[in-house]
Design a binder for these strands. Structure first.
Length: 474
RNA sequence: GGGGCCGUGGUCUAGCUUGGCUAUGAUUCGCGGCUCGGGCCCGCGAGGUCCUGGGUUCGAAUCCCAGCGGCCCCA
């Protein structure tokens, strides 16, 4: 099905699958389940997301390292909750002939923490803040989905070690700020949740998560932050000598952001029926110059178009589409499909007036400016596009949320591909009943805004202790 | 974990119920021409293990079984 036929909100799956292939983001035809090929645009954008995040991590004192891909069964099994949470979905390498099996990392706690134990001797070694941008591997049993639910997961994971619980708490807040900054540069609309206890990371004291909205009403968990307390430090023996000379067990946090899921959010939230709409900061081509040739004036037009590209290239990733066998109209569609934020059209009229026609991708509006004004106009448009994407996305997210006063209402909201807000008593049985009868998961209570329950649990009618959101999830 | 649907050139697709002609059409790709301010048009050409393996049959894209892959629903 073509992009034009498969409208984003009507048939999200078809729209998305068709778009990622045509816009050269990813090819999900690789014949091993859950593994996909990232093509030039997908790989480029994920790289930009990585740079954006790593910059913020470096600025806040995190240091980049690379840890091995594998752990052993023995190391993996040390934290009881952790192994329970992950053991069913790890890939195992069988070395044969009685040698121990190796486990490919589903996440790197069990690989990093034995080393942390060696490195940390004293309070002076703390805090320790390290990160890596690598792939982790999870044998997903549910249906996989390109970019959203894959078995080879490109992400960034950061792990920190601290002297005190309050230092760990402060680290959680720093991580929140880092992820908020990155996601906002990308215009992504999200909510931050404190996950209910039954859904927290295996081995964590509590888990926070960034859920981005999706056009099909599901939520897309793009990042998580975990306060690990001393659970792992006890299991892996991460101890240090305190200022007063006594020995203490360290406090830890870890947090991760999935590059392919952030990429999916960019595509799904901003994209339209013409194709990708990319935030300028990640666009492989930020501004494209399209010449509109006219019989007898081809040379002047191409020369002028080249000059315009030259005037922009110092500041922007600027391309000149001088293919002679493709019509201007086809080029317009092509670059809209690719999500180039700004397009500059140059024809006989512009040559005569020493001007340029500038079009912005997000609204498709066009305006004519003089050659001299062009660089500042493009600058202004880039800023405006970035701000507009974020604002539009946030507005859309708010419009997807509805309050529900009963399980029946939750069911209806979910069926309409939206997100329900309810009051909940906090009991697991109610969460399970809700999932069974309404078909959505409790994602948690908001952490980015304060919401106080006033009434009764929509499931059992008991006193509500939390305001929580219910949605289907990837 | 349970159930259902699907797999045909690079892409989308007809044909399958009721087995039988050179596997349909569009798109894409290559060459030529005409155009060029929103995907134009014309001509010629290329492109297929009909998912894989096995079975039934004189004969299988079509029927049966298994596997692989995908989609959807339920838990």
């Amino acid at each position: 099905m073509s992009v034009q036929a498969a409208k984003k909100f009507e048939n999200f799956s078809a729209w998305f699958d068709d778009l990622i292939l045509r816009a050269r983001i990813a090819d999900n035809r690789f014949p091993v389940k859950g593994f996909i090929v990232y093509m030039e645009n997908g790989a480029y954008i994920m790289d930009k997301i990585r740079e954006l995040l790593e910059d913020e991590l470096e600025k806040t004192g995190h240091r980049k390292m690379y840890f091995p891909l594998v752990t052993s069964e023995e190391l993996f099994g040390k934290e009881a909750e952790h192994i329970k949470g992950f053991s069913r979905e790890v890939f195992v390498i069988d070395q044969g002939s009685g040698e121990q099996k190796l486990i490919i990392r589903p996440t790197s706690e069990t690989i990093m923490y034995p080393m942390f134990r060696l490195w940390i001797r004293s309070h002076a070694d703390l805090p320790l803040k390290v990160y890596q941008s690598v792939n982790v591997y999870r044998r997903e049993t549910k249906a996989t989905r390109a970019l959203y639910r894959v078995r080879e997961i490109p992400w960034n994971e950061a792990h920190t070690v601290h002297e005190s619980p309050s230092d760990a708490e402060r680290q959680v807040r720093e991580a929140l700020e880092i992820y908020q900054k990155v996601l906002e540069r990308l215009g992504i609309g999200y909510m931050i949740f404190k996950r209910p206890d039954f859904d927290k990371f295996a081995g964590a004291v509590y888990s926070l998560a960034f859920d981005a909205w999706n056009p099909d009403g599901k939520v897309n968990q793009v990042a998580t932050i975990h306060n690990l307390g001393r659970n792992f430090a006890k299991a892996y023996g991460i101890e240090f000598e305190k200022r007063d000379g006594s020995r203490g067990t360290a406090y830890q946090t870890c947090y991760g952001l999935g590059f392919s899921r952030v990429l999916a959010a960019i595509i799904a939230q901003h994209g339209d029926d013409h194709g990708l709409v990319l935030p300028p900061i990640v666009a492989p081509v930020q501004v494209v110059v399209v010449p509109i040739p006219f019989k007898g004036q081809e040379r002047e037009i191409y020369e002028y178009a080249g000059k315009i590209r030259g005037a922009l290239a110092g500041r922007w990733r600027a391309a000149l589409d001088d293919r002679e066998d493709v019509t201007p109209g086809e080029k317009f569609y092509h670059w809209e499909l690719m999500g180039a934020p700004v397009r500059v059209e140059v024809g006989p009229r512009e040559v005569a007036e020493y001007s340029a026609t500038v079009a912005r991708r997000d609204t498709l509006e066009r305006v004519k400016v003089s050659f001299e004004e062009l660089p500042s106009k493009v600058e202004e448009l880039m800023r405006s596009i970035e701000a507009n994407l974020l604002e539009k996305s946030r507005r859309m997210m708010l419009s997807l949320i509805s309050d529900a006063g009963s399980v029946e209402e939750v069911k209806k909201i979910l069926r309409d591909r939206r997100i329900a807000r309810i009051e909940w008593c906090g009991e697991v049985e109610c969460a399970e009943r809700l999932k069974e009868e309404a078909g959505g998961e409790i994602r948690g209570e908001r952490y980015d805004i304060a919401e106080t329950p006033k009434g009764r649990c929509v499931v059992c009618g008991g006193g509500a202790r939390f305001v929580v959101y219910v949605a289907r999830a990837y």
